[in-house]
């Protein structure tokens, strides 16, 4: 049997919002370590890899590893029936063909449960090698969302140029062109507001803004986002999921293949 109880139910609601526009269906791979999900978007341009660690749940029981095939649009609709301050419990029997979601109000005076059919999905997974990236940019997640939104008015691609001085985002199109330069933060008193560039070597790559704007749907999960880049490998955009003490409860990682320069 699989059963996981999440006191901060809003976290699962935010995770669903961060993937439902990019993925149609995916399998939650549940094991003793936690709940993982990995899937490509339908055009195989982007890959999502997320994890909710077992110790982020108040109760977590996984008698044996189980893969739950889910239609994400349906799961998202059901999670919209949960209030932000509800406790959410996910349950599935080992040989289940359905998954149950239970939403409890904080005062336990309102309990609702929803059962959803599971799908048989072939769980093909891509091997994502550990990569020493040439550049890792840490910045406020709201700032990254704004840059992707603003530059989208100019064109469908963004050139991200990372040097030791900082990072520049550029876009051009029929309307004109635009550049946004972020300097490294000098004094890092408030970490979540800092821009930190860890550069081994300078990198310049071009990416689709359409996909980056899908990724920024994860911004409510974390005040910070990290962009990891190396020449000729996909960009990794990571939103870490930490608890109030800053301990890791998981992450949402997006991988995006670069555009190929003419």
């Amino acid at each position: 049997m699989f059963e996981a109880r999440l006191v901060e139910g809003s976290l699962l609601k935010k995770v669903m919002e961060s993937i439902k526009d990019l993925l149609n269906e995916a399998s939650w791979d549940c094991s003793g370590n936690g709940m993982c999900l990995q899937a490509m978007d339908s055009s195989h341009v982007a890959l999502v890899s997320l994890m909710l660690k077992s110790d982020g749940f108040e109760n977590y029981r996984c008698d044996r590893s189980i893969s739950l095939g889910i239609n994400l649009a349906s799961m998202s609709k059901i999670l919209k029936c949960a209030s932000n301050d509800d406790i959410i419990t996910i349950r599935a029997e080992d040989d289940a063909d359905a998954i149950t979601f239970m939403f409890e109000s904080p005062k336990q005076d309102r309990v609702s449960d929803y059962e959803m059919k599971l799908m048989n999905l072939d769980t093909e997974h891509l091997g994502i090698p550990d990569t020493e990236y040439a550049c890792v940019i840490k910045m406020p997640s709201g700032e990254f969302s704004r840059i992707c939104r603003d530059l989208s008015v100019l064109g469908d691609s963004v050139i991200i140029c990372c040097t030791k001085d900082g990072v520049r985002f550029s876009a051009k199109g029929d309307l004109g062109n635009g550049n946004i330069k972020l300097a490294q933060s000098a004094n890092v008193d408030k970490e979540e507001e800092a821009v930190v560039v860890d550069m081994r070597e300078a990198v310049t790559l071009t990416f689709s803004l359409r996909y980056l704007n899908f990724f920024t749907k994860a911004a409510p999960l974390s005040s910070q986002v990290s962009l990891s880049m190396s020449e000729d490998v996909p960009l990794m955009v990571e939103y870490k999921i930490n608890d109030k003490e800053g301990d890791s409860k998981g992450y949402v990682r997006y991988y995006l293949a670069p555009k190929i320069e003419d």
Binding site: E124, H125, G127, P129, S208, K259
Partner: peptide, 14 residues
């Protein structure tokens, strides 16, 4: 518009 690469050109199926 620059042509877009696919992610599974970089990461192989397990």
């Amino acid at each position: 518009m620059d042509p877009q690469a696919a992610i599974d050109e970089y990461y192989i199926l397990n």
